[in-house]
Design a protein around this nucleic acid. Structure first.
Length: 551
RNA sequence: GCCCUCGUAGCUCAACGGAUAGAGCGCCAGCCUUCUAAGCUGGUUAUAGAGGUUCAAUUCCUCUCGAGGGCACCA
């Protein structure tokens, strides 16, 4: 909010003062840096625009900064008590107490809408995440993408985007064959037949659970292929149902759509893509397989679309899927959240998009894998070997709030370590409680102030004076800018950290300033903590964390 | 060998090219007769290494070292 306003003002002034630069350098030039400063003694918001300009005009940046300040409109300056040029060429803005104090009521009036913005302009954006294969339970590593995607989608919605969450289910392909075979073999073993269990099969315990759910009658191993065909659907359904139950009930994530890979074939999307590729001469045959010329668009080699055995590759489906997203369903922006093990797919996907000239923007977020640590040693996670910790187990163990906050705090490209032995112990010290506690404290104070308030008219807001009040208030005002930024940078971890900061400033305020003093309710402070409650609540909700009124 | 990502405090992680690199946990010392001590205050310790770009580098570029992932007619 504030950043945008300052940017616009600076831009306007610079255009007026140096019109010759407008065409020469282009608009971005004026938009360089407008940032909140870390330390209040430097002003609250700072811009280094004069530095950028000085290089261009070969003049002293400090003078330029002064000149810009002189041209800022009066009206605009009212917001700030001080606008000053600082070495080596910053323009620092210090918010005025009066204006600042008035903002509290704005926050309260906006209430649930505080933090919302319209920068999205109803842009259609899709966030695709988790999309784990239905061949095993959702494990811990999927948690990062799960909470990241969910929160990102919420933030998009809050900024006026039309955001959709989607889960892509690979319901066809080899992995499923293996799954079916694994289950059948376990089934036969359970019924006393001597059947081996090859390494290519899934070793996890859940396979035995699946086998228990089946009734196949009297079968033999030589019926394997016939059986596989027959029960594949059944097993698939059990797996998908379980994933959906877990995601919706345990993770509290609602997808707008569960997109089945098979749907792409049913709708002829795959055939369609092949024709498009052919029409653009992007496809050729070699050694019995059909290849896509991705190397002409940045990939390091061409990729197979149809194998020599006439099966389509996963890649081809994925191309069709993205065509469906961009062209058929018309998303302007697609954000795919993939695990690091899919990192190699990024370039080829972007290559195909470029080659086929789809409209829209494809952003692929790679979340690094989670490394499990137990007794100071790494525990290798793998579906095949059956050693992994499911996300459900974690959530049952530490609670959803803790799990969400924990994962959301980490940037997606951090290689994080997860210590199984410490998980429980650490969870009790999770900062989420710190934040929730701040909210609960506020509720408690408000409750008591309600009781004591003897129909006193809500007095006019006076200027806040105490440093703790002002620090808190300034922080509250940053939320709109923060959320807007996240829609571009996808740095979702900034939200939990921001929330911790607000809680910290509140706790600080709490120890230094009394809201109710010897029975007297300080109305000004009541309003301030109400605004704080709005911010905390809105942030927690965006993260999908519960908002307790008492703890 | 090639490609992607990472290397920050004893540990787990922040820092949108900017000013004094921040939290939590740990450890040490304090603070509850008044609104929730799941809190507050103080102390403790860090940018892997070497160059470069910049007025300004944890951030960008190059190289070295170290870690994870990817290099299939698997998904």
């Amino acid at each position: 909010m504030l950043k945008k306003e300052i940017s616009l003002q600076l831009k306007r002034v610079c255009h007026e003062l140096w019109p010759e630069l407008k065409t020469e350098v282009g608009q971005d030039f004026f938009f360089q840096t407008v940032e909140y400063t870390k330390d209040a003694s430097f002003g609250d918001i700072s811009s280094s625009i004069a530095l950028q300009l000085s290089r261009r005009l070969s003049r002293n940046p400090l003078d330029l900064a002064e000149k810009i300040i002189g041209s800022l409109s009066r009206n605009f300056q009212n917001k700030f008590t001080r606008i000053e040029a600082v070495m080596p060429g910053f323009i620092n803005f210090t918010l005025g107490k009066l204006w600042l104090s008035q903002q509290v009521t704005r926050i309260i009036e906006a209430d649930r809408n505080y933090g919302k913005g319209d920068s999205g302009q109803n842009e259609k954006v899709q966030v695709e995440f988790i999309s784990a294969n239905p061949t095993g339970p959702i494990h811990l590593g999927n948690g990062r993408g799960a909470f990241l995607g969910d929160t990102l989608a919420r933030i998009f919605s809050s900024q006026g985007y039309e955001a959709r969450r989607e889960y892509y289910i690979n319901d066809i392909g080899n992995q499923l064959e293996i799954l079916a075979e694994s289950v059948i073999r376990r089934y036969l073993q359970k019924h006393g037949l001597k059947v081996d269990f090859p390494e290519r099969c899934y070793q996890g315990e859940y396979i035995k659970d699946l086998a228990k759910k089946l009734t196949l009658g009297n079968v033999k191993l030589k019926d394997l292929n016939r059986l596989k065909k027959r029960i594949k659907e059944k097993i698939l359904k059990i797996m998908i149902d379980d994933i959906q139950r877990m995601v919706q009930e345990k993770l509290k994530i609602r997808f707008n759509k569960w997109y089945y890979e098979s749907e792409l074939y049913r709708q002829g999307a795959v055939k369609n893509i092949l024709e498009q590729l052919k029409a653009k001469d992007l496809i050729y045959k070699q050694e019995g397989a059909t290849w896509i010329k991705t190397s002409a668009f940045g990939d390091d080699k061409d990729r197979v679309a149809i194998k020599a055995n006439r099966e389509n590759t996963y890649f081809l489906s994925d191309v069709a899927y993205h065509w469906n997203k961009f062209v058929e369903r018309g998303f302007n922006r697609v954000v795919d959240i993939w695990g690091a093990d899919h990192q190699g797919h990024v370039i080829r996907m972007q290559a195909v998009k470029k080659a086929l000239g789809w409209p829209g923007r494809l952003d692929i977020i790679i979340v690094q894998l989670v490394r499990l640590i137990s007794q100071n040693k790494e525990v290798k996670m793998s579906k095949r070997s059956g050693t992994f910790v499911t996300l459900e187990e974690l959530v049952d163990d530490v609670g959803l709030d803790v799990a969400r906050f924990f994962f959301l705090m980490r940037s997606s490209d951090t290689h994080m370590d997860f210590d199984l032995d410490l998980a429980k112990e650490k969870s009790e010290k999770n900062p989420v409680y710190y934040v929730q506690y701040a909210h609960a404290r506020i509720c408690s104070i408000l409750k008591q102030s309600e009781l004591r308030k003897i129909s006193k008219q809500p007095s006019r807001i006076e200027e806040f004076d105490h440093q703790a009040e002002i620090d808190l208030l300034k922080e509250l005002l940053r939320l709109p800018d923060l959320l807007k930024d996240v829609c571009e940078t996808y740095e979702v971890q900034r939200l939990p950290f921001y929330t911790i900061k607000v809680a910290e400033l509140f706790h600080n305020f709490y120890t230094q300033c009394r809201v109710i003093n010897q029975g007297e309710v300080n109305q000004n402070r009541v309003v301030l903590i109400k605004a704080t409650r709005v911010v905390l609540r809105n942030c927690l909700k965006l993260m999908g964390v519960s908002v307790p009124n008492s703890m």
